[in-house]
Amino acid sequence: MTTTEKTYAGVCVTCNEQGYLTNFEQWNKDVGLAIAKEEQIEMTDKHWEVIQFLQEQHKKQVPLSIRKIGKSGVVSIKEFYQLFPKGPLKISSRISGIPKPVSCI
């Protein structure tokens, strides 16, 4: 796997080829904000609530899915799409500093 160093909000972080942080420890809210800007997402409190939920699930090693978000009580799937249009799980995972959801191959 090739990784690159990137600087977000003055913090040097390691990213994979697709721009996902490879070490969650390097994440902070400003880093998240800078990545969101790259994704052209204007962050609101609701966005951060979703991000927090994703990070909690990640720490508990729970694989994420659209259904899980819909049942989280944080947002409905429709709202999730409104917050992070086009591939919301991909985009929100990137802003959260957690790995992109993948299949086995």
Binding site: M1, E17, G87, K90, K100, P101, V102, S103, C104, I105
Partner: peptide, 8 residues
Amino acid sequence: MSGAFTKP
């Protein structure tokens, strides 16, 4: 998923 294959 983000493609037919997702692992690099």
